[in-house]
Write a protein that binds this DNA or RNA. Structure first.
Lengths: 242, 242
DNA sequence: TGTTTTTCATTTGTCAGACAATTAAAAGTC
DNA sequence: GACTTTTAATTGTCTGACAAATGAAAAACA
């Protein structure tokens, strides 16, 4: 389980890797202070700049934070849900945008994942999440919403749906899937008619949560997935025609 | 959608953030070469070391790769599934280990997520994945397997199950959930009896795939989740007693 | 002419040393 | 005791230098 990224040739990457292993494997614990840059450069027999580059790598992964001044230094960072969320989203978004993923594959994955929280969501949904979903649904009925705003509202709606399961680990894992779809969805221009259809599905989803109707929720998500793919296919076909 | 991490005070973080935005928003495309460090330091009016620290931050997120020599430089990296996998796993693992997640919550999330690929897995499972699962199942019957080896085999089994859905995006999203459980599971000592019980569930899972029996697969996953939680609860109770 | 070797310019990797900015503890002052 | 000043430690940034790698161009060679 060691040296997760050891094919790197630069010293700074090697040092970062060693320190990272120390953190992941628990030899350095949360909020523990690392040796100062000067001490580290002695320990590893490299210059301070090389140590600094290694530390910046770790900072980029939110593994450490640094503080200036006496009694400052680099500290092992407690990875917050927020940090983990944004890293997950960045990675997922780039993975989808750089690997020309088939949109059907992405949609299939997304709705399969959302389906996974249907039973929990129906059982535990709280008024808090339901009101967010109702608010977003209402926003979506506004005809002067731009495509970008529409998609953002769509994402907020589905994130709230996921949150209904009241399981933060589940929410974390699904955030990437839901958010990363945003750029893909933004490519699709929604006509008034297609918006109305999606809105009716969203309304059904809220109803299914209110009445704790698991089969209805699953069916609705399936229809939503199918309709999303249809829309995407149509947009792609129109584009190819031109 | 700009300046995703703008509360940073250091120049290197600011510069990294700007370049990152350029990549995420598509102004810099895959394999495009960034200006040289010297040029960047002119552009941003900072020293070369500061630019280098910024670039190392991006390299840590696999957003760029660098190459020495004439016509070398920093290039926008195409994020591979492999890179995305390992980043996801690192983040998920740390998130779970640093936030003293309730093991029930983690188990619940994991099996809910796995359940999401049951229909696709039953429909598309190929001989390739089934043989991996049979091999790991056979490994698990060996009594001289250490707890670590047992858990690793367990992870391999479930990863292969996820791969049955033949959807790379789904596999990517679920990798974090399955792999991050490994350290948590490693805390549990498996008696011969509990191993046998898990093995029987695994066998049932293989059968459900072979016969494309969706309800059986879902039921088996549910039982597996419940049993995992029971084991964990027992371990925790025993530890508290001491 | 075609091929191989050498040279060379460019770029990243590493180092050393300096100073600025920040910060909390310690010392001094009233 | 409360407040101010000093001080030492530490990160942030800059400058300049050299090593190492590398592909292109030039030179040498057959």
């Amino acid at each position: 389980m060691k040296n997760t990224q050891n094919d790197a040739t630069d010293l700074s990457a090697q040092i970062a890797s060693k320190i990272r292993d120390s953190i992941v494997e628990g030899r350095l614990i949360v909020n523990e202070r690392l040796p100062s840059e000067a001490e580290l450069s002695e320990q590893f027999s490299v210059s301070r700049s090389t140590v600094r580059e290694a530390l910046k790598r770790l900072a980029a992964q939110s593994l450490i934070r640094t503080q200036r001044g006496a009694f400052g230094g680099a500290f092992v960072n407690k990875l917050s849900y927020q940090d983990a969320y944004s890293q997950n989203i960045t990675t997922s978004t780039l993975l989808l945008s750089m690997n020309d993923i088939n949109i059907d594959v992405a949609c299939e994955a997304r709705f399969a994942l959302e389906r996974s929280c249907v039973p929990l969501a129906c059982a535990r949904r709280s008024e808090e999440q339901l009101s967010v979903m109702r608010r977003e649904l209402h926003r979506q009925t506004s005809p002067d919403l731009s495509d970008e705003e529409w998609c953002a509202s769509d994402v907020a709606f589905h994130r709230s749906f996921v949150d209904c399961a009241q399981n933060p680990v589940l929410s974390y894992q699904l955030t990437g899937a839901v958010e990363a779809m945003l750029p893909l969805m933004n490519m699709i221009t929604f006509t008034a008619r297609s918006r109305a259809k999606i809105i009716s599905h969203h309304a059904a989803l809220i109803t299914s949560l209110e009445t704790q109707d698991i089969p209805l929720a699953e069916r609705t998500l399936g229809e939503l997935a199918e309709y999303s793919m249809q829309l995407a296919a149509k947009v792609l076909a129109d584009r190819d025609k031109k």
